[in-house]
Amino acid sequence: MKGIHWLALLPFVGLFGGLGFANKVEPYVAGMPFIMFWVVMWVVLTSVVMACVYKLDPANKEGADE
């Protein structure tokens, strides 16, 4: 695991760590109960985080398709 790879732990820590706080119905966000919004938000953030890992990971620099 290189330094940047640890970033991939963020979705796990963020999603699970915040459950106690996020386990409620109100406030509604985008029409969804807060817990549902929380979960959806972390799915989107997982994508964002993995995009950052991908960009910064030297393994993906070499060649177009390795």
Partner: peptide, 14 residues
């Protein structure tokens, strides 16, 4: 059901 796929894909990166 919404989450486990996303996290599995994060794991799949490695």
């Amino acid at each position: 059901i919404l989450v486990y796929g996303a996290l599995a894909y994060a794991i799949s990166y490695f």
